[in-house]
Design a protein around this nucleic acid. Structure first.
Lengths: 234, 234
DNA sequence: AGAAATTTGTTCGTATGTATT
DNA sequence: CAATACATACGAACAAATTTC
């Protein structure tokens, strides 16, 4: 079994990011110097530099030549890509936050798809609709989830909004680690074949109101499951 | 005149990112080797490595030891933080995309704020409301825009959703370059004092429906201005 | 299948500009 | 002003993985 060897700079980056996002390095604090970090992690200074550059890009630190590299307030300077990197990304609170964002995105994606889908997008949508029906025959949730995600992928494209696409990408990044949990919460949504068909039909008909209603209905099921879980285990 | 010296690795990063986002490096292509790039930009290979690591983190390339570093399809692998980095970020289409996302976020932020704002958040909100009224007295749009942004900043916190906060951060990143344009499109929204007051009141009252309606009304003004501009100059 | 060439990964060392004290 | 600490940058070399012949 070939172990996936992570580059040393990535190891340093992950460690520092976890320290910052986890609050072990307080905002305004200076992180250890490059030399100190290179000794502590037993790596060369160049590797540390690569890691710090990435921290800088992620909006987690501010480096200044001559002075200490300071920790920024990531809740102010961080971008959406941090969502799946949060130390408590698997916690119910963060998961709910992500699904609430998805819900609000989904409704708007449905509306814009109904408004803007061209012939090409409609063809893609019909193909995915057929794939979804086939997946329902298979019976297992993993196959169904895959087909359902592909359906939304086509809808995102059909909405013709690059911001929706990029936000959608950010939400799905690193979802592999949460796939098991996702299937649990998405279960009702996945098996609501009627509303899904209604959504597809509304988009194909160009009925924006119906598309929004169907998308809202679908995501509401998942949000409800999350709220119940959150209330049960706080 | 002290020129703002950008680190060499950042210069390489910017150049490569522009080539990828601009389509001059096609998806699936291999980018030049580290040695080639270091010669071409007349910098050390370590600087190139830092730049490539950042490209990798941004989801723009996939590097593999021994093989070529390949360009990924950023519309699939990129996150929301790319929105303000796009070569056509100032183009009307990308601006509209960003404001459509903001509109859908704003409505949900308003609803969740009305639902979840605690006493502390309400105090902050009242303070910002007063600041907004003071800014209206000043008369100039720049001051008003600043106060308006601070209002929404408080609302984002009040909504108690980390995903909303991070997405909001991503949308505002690099807005400095677009501030002049932003004031133009936001003008109607900024000067709609009545609806803004209604939004604040609804949140303080915990009236989710009224909060959503007010937020939708506000953002609709800006979307309308954008649509008119887009139709006029395609 | 195997060897050579290419490319990224990593480490050593060295020098310089800048901010803090 | 001087000393110190820090980030910035360059150069050379070897290791490890992939591609190519």
């Amino acid at each position: 079994m070939a172990d996936v060897r992570t580059p040393v700079s990535t190891a340093v980056y992950d460690a520092l990011r976890a320290d910052i996002l986890g609050g072990r390095l307080a905002v305004g604090d200076g992180i250890p110097s490059e030399r100190t970090l290179s000794e502590r992690h037993a790596v060369n200074r160049h590797a540390v530099r690569e890691a710090v550059k990435r921290l800088q890009q992620a909006g987690l630190v501010q480096v200044s030549q001559g002075g200490a590299t300071r920790v920024l307030d990531w809740s102010r300077t961080g971008g959406l890509e941090l969502l799946t990197d949060l130390p408590g990304a698997g916690d119910i609170g963060a998961v709910r936050a992500g699904y609430e964002l998805r819900a609000c995105l989904a409704a708007e994606i449905a509306v814009r798809s109904a408004q803007r889908a061209d012939d090409d997008a409609r063809d893609h949508l019909r193909a995915r609709a057929a794939g979804l029906i086939a997946a329902r025959q298979a019976g297992d949730d993993a196959t169904l989830l895959k087909a359902y995600r592909e359906l939304w992928d086509v809808l995102v494209d059909a909405s013709r909004n690059i911001a929706y696409r990029l936000a959608y990408n950010s939400l799905l990044a690193g979802e592999d680690t949460l796939r098991a949990a996702a299937i649990v919460f998405l279960r009702d949504e996945l098996h609501d074949a009627g509303t899904t068909e209604a959504l597809i039909g509304a988009v194909l008909d160009g009925d924006q109101d119906a598309a929004r209603a169907a998308a809202t209905m679908l995501t509401a099921r998942t949000l409800r499951a999350l709220t119940l879980t959150e209330a049960a285990a706080p």
